[in-house]
Design a protein around this nucleic acid. Structure first.
Lengths: 355, 355
DNA sequence: ATGAAAGCGCTAACAA
DNA sequence: TTGTTAGCGCTTTCAT
């Protein structure tokens, strides 16, 4: 009756007793390591099954120092990009017997730091992070300082010696932009939601490397074409449509836009519709990430697709190998992106491209 | 030099030594519980900050039995429904100082059982589960048997005494279906991907309660209207489009379809497009879940929107209160769904509804 | 208000 | 091959 209320968990001690061996032997039989006589092993296993024994992973972590858990910090799991990367990481972790603890940073440094702290306190064996800003090397160094491997995904942090898995965003942006300039566009906007206090001016340092690379590629292609680059960062997530409207109307209206992700493309699309602007007749639109709806609307949206699941899986794979003790310098693995041509690009309305 | 390599972690022992107090006092000061003299508390805190002390959450779990972590098992995090529910749960957990461990079940019983086992072994304080099947009460009972609270979301499991947070799917299905029958449709399909070996026949028990409720509502509304209900379950996730094509063509082609989630609706939409069928002129389409693209295509898709973030947050809230010791019988909390009328419903092509 | 010591369940040296 | 013992870092009686 004394162990009634909480129905005390069955521990390895109970199993050992039932199988008439010592705790150590029971542990060896169950964890199969060390040496145990076949017959004894069987006896222990039966006892364990019989009692419904489940090892206490916390205790195991306590004594081994390893938790079989990895942490992952994403911007927002509701963003399909992160959801797919998370799934990729989860699959890879799972296959290796690891579990995944997930946190959202909302792309805010403070939130990210807190999340990392908690994960570290929980003794994750390693961390997967899409850093909210490339100026946060210090915050990230807390991970390696704690002696745990860290791999970045989607973004790198200059000055931080860490593995990273990213897409070739510069190249992707160049290809996407060329589509537009080749079609004759002379004034094109690049639109992103990442914060950039004070508004972007050519040459500014952009805090998220993937976006920085895209902007660099965009500007490069625009310069090549001798066209006007309008880079608009910091559009509020829930008000992108308004920003798009501003870009698309008035004096310096652009005739095409490059959306930095599928969520942004969605709002640009909405803005066009509300403005009565037809794609691609009145405005051309291209975007990063192949959202499910991009091929659904008529005409479809031309996009640069990133292998998101693979990026997540690869990042987890690298992390796992580091956890397993793999040495060597940090490397950044760059995935190619895939251009998916659909019908959202056409020459601009006033054919400035034709003499 | 002996503690060089792994640069041993700073423990409460080190803090205690630095502050010249006992471990117990240091722990009290840091965890602020028990009684500690103000001046001593300060001294300890300074020492901790100085040394960069971080409590070891694992050790704490070890001695308190509580991990400040909750587990969540979803079908697939890439499904926007689950992504949003996960975000809701994560937000609620976070606000209460809890972390979330996430697993995907892929709607497979075995995977789910394994995930639950791992989570339990990790000593999560409670579990949030969208059960893969309502016939899995036993597998779920492992959670309560382990003395940890369990709350289901999106689905219930008859015969299992557990809190649950769901949407009013029966009502939702009725409203959606009535839209169709009122428009004159006499042969309508309900399409879902959930497995149902052998194909569905009226009266069969459907393994996922949310779908079962939708089918019940659908059949109810169809009977009311004296119309032909075609219930098609078990469409393979990556081949829904083909199933939709079959439904939409040939002898007994339907003139309208109710898609059980937004992913399915997407494929039905694709099927229509490939078949050259116009929505809503040739076929009417309604669906559950308000995907971002539903309002984007032309015309928009009429949907029944579920408060996914709220469902996740509420589920986590209930779980947290149970963890906090809240007693009382298990309750199921039902959220209303919201009908969003757009333009995807019209009378069927052969106006059988008009005399 | 503070300290000493036990203990959470497991693994890992070390003995036997 | 097996058992004994000593921790892992923290919280928590129980004394003082």
């Amino acid at each position: 009756m004394d162990r009634a209320v909480g129905r005390r968990e069955v521990t390895i001690r109970d199993v050992a007793a039932a199988a008439q061996v010592s705790k150590a032997t029971a542990a060896r039989a169950l964890g199969d390591y060390g040496a145990v006589r076949g017959e004894v092993r069987e006896r222990v296993r039966r006892a364990a099954a019989q009692l419904g024994y489940r090892p206490n992973a916390v205790a195991r972590t306590m004594s081994t120092g390893r938790s079989q858990t990895i942490g992952m910090v994403v911007g927002d799991i509701q963003n399909p990009f992160f959801a797919q990367a998370a799934r990729g990481a989860s699959d890879a972790a799972d296959a290796a017997g690891y579990e995944l603890i997930l946190s959202n940073s909302d792309e805010a440094g403070a939130t990210e730091t807190k999340a990392i702290g908690v994960q570290l306190d929980k003794r994750v064996d390693g961390l997967l992070i899409a850093p909210a800003s490339s100026s946060r090397a210090d915050a990230l160094r807390a991970v390696t300082d704690a002696g745990r491997p860290l791999v970045l995904f989607d973004r790198t942090v200059p000055g931080l010696e860490a593995d990273a898995v990213v897409a070739d965003n510069r190249r992707g942006a160049i290809e996407l932009t060329r589509l537009l300039t080749d079609a004759g566009h002379r004034r094109i906007a690049f639109l992103s939601t990442i914060e950039h206090p004070g508004g972007y001016r050519r040459g500014d340092i952009i805090s998220i490397s993937s976006v920085a690379d895209r902007v660099a590629g965009f500007e490069h292609a625009m310069r090549d074409a001798g066209a006007d680059a309008v880079v608009r960062l910091g559009a509020p997530r829930d008000d992108v449509e308004q920003v798009a409207v501003e870009l698309l109307t008035g004096e310096g209206a652009v005739t095409a836009v490059v959306a930095s992700d599928s969520l942004i493309a969605l709002d640009v699309y909405r803005a066009c519709r509300d403005l009565g602007l037809r794609i691609p007749r009145d405005v051309s639109l291209v975007a990063f990430d192949d959202a499910d709806w991009a091929g659904l609307v008529e005409p479809g949206i031309t996009v640069m697709s990133q292998p998101m699941h693979a990026i997540g899986a690869e990042a987890a794979g690298i992390l796992l190998s580091r956890i397993g003790g793999a040495g060597g310098r940090a490397r950044v693995r760059v995935f190619d992106q895939e251009l998916i041509l659909r019908g959202s690009v056409a020459p601009p309305p006033e054919p400035s491209g034709r003499p």
